[in-house]
Design a protein around this nucleic acid. Structure first.
Ligand SMILES: [Mn+2]
Ligand SMILES: [Mn+2]
Ligand SMILES: [Zn+2]
Ligand SMILES: [Zn+2]
Lengths: 137, 137
DNA sequence: TCCTAGTTTATAATTATTCTAAACTAGTAA
DNA sequence: TTACTAGTTTAGAATAATTATAAACTAGGA
């Protein structure tokens, strides 16, 4: 699905040199079927598991920030102390389970709003997010 | 509106001794017309402005946590590095302006949803929040 | 008034993240 | 090819928010 060439083009198109670190991180992030909701820590675990490769934590942070600026990932709203990111950059919504701290995607069309307020003057709506917090039944 | 007695009762009812620090913090938080969206830092500024009273930052944090646990305030979802709290504990929604980092309340009935997805099995919905991010028109 | 569990406080510790500056490398041009 | 350089990576230091520690204080009942 995400061949090396595609990844390199993606990086080039956002003025990011396709270094081996960025290519590896991009592979881990984008070469998967399901959305990946992650923190710097979880990404670091995925990348640096059991002495395989070795990418510094600083590069993990730098790359996440670069990918975010380039629009390849987006940051998620949480009230966790860590920043959460999402490989799904389409407008969509989330279930949040405070017990497991896991987010699950909700397709945009699964939520239908038929009334929303007007934004304050001088402002327009950039994005609308719905977060549905869960609890045990 | 929020007399000292009411505040003391509120504290007592949640098993919090009405100390002078908690009473003062509660007054600053709850004795106001508009919702207060705050961080530990902004609350500390409100409390410890120009050499008036003096409550330690540790107590600010302790009290915010205690009030949150007691359900007198709630934490807000943001992607800011600081934790945001809200004196409006009713279910409601927010505009978020990333430029000013300010939140504005949206009344619950200002947003009408006529389709929401079913929660995963074993779970039920605890809360549903809508955050509308703004940008310059 | 005395007692004690609960609270406050200064300060240290921790955690997530950003900064720094030196070493490295991708890409280009000689 | 080789040399150059701007961009990148990295270890480690610095910062910022928050939490933990433990000693001093206090609310409120006996
Ligand atoms: Mn937060
Ligand atoms: Mn957050
Ligand atoms: Zn998502
Ligand atoms: Zn609010």
């Amino acid at each position: 699905m995400h061949q090396k060439k595609e990844i390199i083009n993606k990086l080039r198109s956002s003025n990011l040199r396709p270094t081996k670190q960025r290519i590896l991180i991009a592979k881990k992030l984008f070469d998967r079927k399901e959305t990946f909701h992650f923190t710097a820590e979880t990404l670091n675990q995925v990348i640096n598991k059991k002495g395989q490769s070795r990418i510094s934590l600083a590069t993990i942070y730098n790359t996440v920030e670069a990918f975010k600026k380039a629009g390849h990932i987006r940051e998620i709203l949480t009230n966790n102390s860590k920043s959460y990111y999402d490989t799904n950059i389409k407008s969509h919504h989330h279930f949040y389970d405070p017990e497991t701290k896991k987010l699950t995607d909700i397709d945009y069309q699964e939520v239908v709003l038929n009334k929303i307020p007007n934004p304050p003057k001088g402002k327009k709506i950039k994005d609308l997010e719905v977060i549905i917090s869960l609890q045990k039944k």
